[in-house]
Amino acid sequence: MTRAVIVKAKRTVIGKKGGILKQYSPEQLASFVMKDIIQDLPEQIDDIIFGNAVGPGGNIARLSGLETGLSVAVPGMTIDRQCGSGLEAIRLACYLVQGGAGQIYVAGGVESSSQSPYDKRARFSPEKLGDPDMGVAAEYVAEKYGITRQMQDEYALYSYQRSIHSLKNGRFSDELVQIPDIPLQDEGLNPKVNYERMLHRLTPCFKENGTVTLGNSCGINDGASAVLIMSEEKAKELGYQPILRFVDSVVTGVNPNYPASGPIPAISQLLSKHSLSIQDIDLFELNEAFASKVVACAKELKIPYEKLNIEGGAIALGHPYGASGAILVTRLFYEVQRYKALFSISTIGIGGGIGIAVLWESMI
């Protein structure tokens, strides 16, 4: 079988909605990372697959390729699996390489919440089944799995502390592409803030007497991330060092009222398919839309926090919906090199009740 590998991975800084990236359209944000990962590439890519969730619609992958200056012969396909779009784009590109459809792909995701033309989110589920807003759904997950406010705040503090440690130690510098006049630091993270005190002071924001606050939830953000995917043979031919080899993936559905629980069956099925256990996986990158989600998944799957989002996550850094899944993979791309991990998983729970989990094997 032809195997798909990732040879380069990059992301922009993550900006707040209406913040430092507000002047950039989605295709401009995507072009910053595309230009970086294809520089010096001696051959034309076969296709661009990009995820996007909040618009403005159209084929943003094609538009981004043209904005980047790629040949008009390179097509482009845009995927909407909501906040799993960037991870789905990478997953699909890997399967296309495996199936022989092409040998070189750019895949990832982009979001400009600042320039979204939509005032309200799309419907995720028919009302008769339940279609809660994500904050309310996070409360439902907390109730179902017995996740207290204290458990959520404790995990959120991990996210802030780990992200600040990573920032101070230059861990994000390899991931980031330079945008003119934009600091190389994610906008939402402020090392001067006493996050522990902040978390204690905040009140629930989605439900009276609830447990979910603005401090243990992600923000609304802008950003882009992309990876360069090749067949192993093409990477060797062109002189690239493969870092991550795509092993397999699972996508599954869950009750739309508990969308954050999607990673639980997805990871379980993926591990079962390959006769692996949680102990066999060295690193997990699970999107931190809400602390209740991460704590519930870790509790049900028995994932130790020492393996989970070890350099920080979206609670501290931000969640640019369509890009977040690709950011998870970009983070793993550098983490497996830093920590000599063998197996890793990127996973995300999605509005409407969907979970994606992707299994990677290190090649270094």
Results as ranks from 00 to 15, higher is better:
289 A>C: 13
299 K>P: 07
309 N>I: 05
304 P>I: 01
307 K>V: 01
298 A>P: 10
295 V>P: 07
289 A>V: 10
285 E>N: 00
293 K>A: 14
312 G>L: 09
322 G>R: 01
336 V>C: 09
330 T>G: 03
319 H>G: 03
308 L>F: 04
324 S>F: 01
295 V>W: 02
314 A>L: 10
314 A>I: 08
290 F>K: 06
327 I>W: 13
329 V>C: 06
311 E>D: 14
285 E>M: 01
328 L>C: 12
307 K>M: 01
330 T>I: 08
325 G>T: 06
304 P>R: 12
287 N>W: 08
312 G>N: 06
333 F>N: 00
328 L>K: 02
336 V>P: 00
320 P>S: 06
336 V>W: 05
290 F>T: 03
295 V>A: 09
329 V>T: 12
311 E>L: 12
309 N>T: 04
286 L>K: 03
322 G>D: 11
309 N>D: 07
333 F>T: 01
300 E>M: 12
305 Y>R: 13
298 A>G: 13
295 V>D: 01
320 P>I: 05
326 A>M: 08
322 G>Q: 02
306 E>C: 10
294 V>W: 02
325 G>L: 08
302 K>P: 09
285 E>C: 01
329 V>M: 08
291 A>G: 11
306 E>R: 15
323 A>F: 00
324 S>Y: 04
301 L>H: 02
323 A>Y: 02
299 K>A: 08
286 L>H: 08
310 I>K: 10
289 A>S: 15
319 H>L: 12
296 A>S: 15
286 L>C: 12
